[in-house]
Amino acid sequence: MCLRVENHVILDCGHTGPLVEVTVDGKTIQAYEGEPILASLLNAGIKINRYTVKRKEPRGLFCGIGQCTDCAMVVDGKPNVRTCITPIKAGMVIKTQNGLSKGE
């Protein structure tokens, strides 16, 4: 599934960063360096970022500007990373967050 906006009458949809690889729950996906982690994940069809503490319900993109924390994931062993305002770096290890998560 590719959800990238490829053609647009108004926007130039080119990416500034190079195409790199990161892993999400062990699976390798391609992403543009510098774009928010969340954007790379959405493009790869990954909509669930975390599961809630008590009811283990899935959560995903909600505000997109770092306010709601629904898109928090474990990034390079660090939990509670708001993926909508954290840029992609080559080789990042990203994991779905369960509850509060202690990372690794």
């Binding site: 959800l3 906006v5 990416h15 959405l42 500007i65």
Partner: peptide, 14 residues
């Protein structure tokens, strides 16, 4: 607004 950020800033469809 989140959807708008995704398409217009990050160029990914929600």
């Amino acid at each position: 607004g989140a959807a708008q950020t995704m398409i217009n800033v990050n160029h990914v469809k929600p």
